[in-house]
Amino acid sequence: MALDKTHLEYPRRGYGMDHDRYDWSMLSERPAVRWPNNAKLALWVNVGLQFFPLNQQGKPFGVPGGMTMPYPDLRHYSLRDYGNRVGIYRFLRAFDEHGITPTFAFNTRLAERAPYLLHKILKRGDEIICHGWSMDSLHYGGMEPAQEAELIERSLGRLRELSGQAISGWLSPARNESEHTPDLLAANGVQYFCDWANDDMPYDFRTDTGALVAMPLSSELEDSYVLMNNLHSEQSWLEQVCDACDLLLQEAASGGGRILALNIHPWLLGQPHRIGKLEQALAYITSQSGVWSAGAGDILAAWRQSAQ
């Protein structure tokens, strides 16, 4: 019994990463970032506006939050749809009450299907980023490159057409990518993407087709991770958000500007028994001094300006 000899060979064992997408760097060793008006903490509230098709294909896997029952899985379809009909309007009231500037990550198919909602968001003037075509349109390793190129072009092109916005940000469904996704995004005019959970600050990401920035959208603090994956209580989600806010503010005092990124979904936190916890979280964060609520694109622009 033995493994093939490649198991004891280490071709990428050298300085830095084991791939060429970005440079190795420790946050603690980087120059301090300055936010506008000397804010300490940028608050990035990212709202996933998602469409989970009833006829889910599940390729290469069923998306978390998607259909799990035999067709037609009405319970999951309609409970996710609840977020776009009911929950989101609770979100919008909470944002207005607490002076939040959110960012909306739209599945393009939802923007097509819910023009009222799209126009409501557009009228607010908040930034929209592309969240792929639908929650069942995953980008994955081994996917046919031409098929992915078409999917990305269609998702971005149609959302730009519907919204009239430039759409420079991207969040992949389930944060899943193929080996080509970053190259295809840059080729299609995307400036930043939010799939990688390896930093608390933006960093430069290499592609074959141009520059891209990875924006740090925390996955571990996301509502679906805490509430749906971990089955933590609503109260615990609130405590975790407040603890994160405290720690990042404390770190910002010596380490430079930080980002508190809350990725949230109206089908989860928009429920009547949960919305109060979101409101309490927003009230707590915005009551701290030095908090700057801004869209992802504005945070990125400020980061770029600070780095110059």
Partner: peptide, 17 residues
């Protein structure tokens, strides 16, 4: 399938941050 970004990137977070 490669690239498994969710698992890889959060572990890289441990070293970077």
């Amino acid at each position: 399938p490669y690239p498994a970004i969710p698992g890889y990137s959060i572990r890289d977070y441990g070293n970077r941050v």
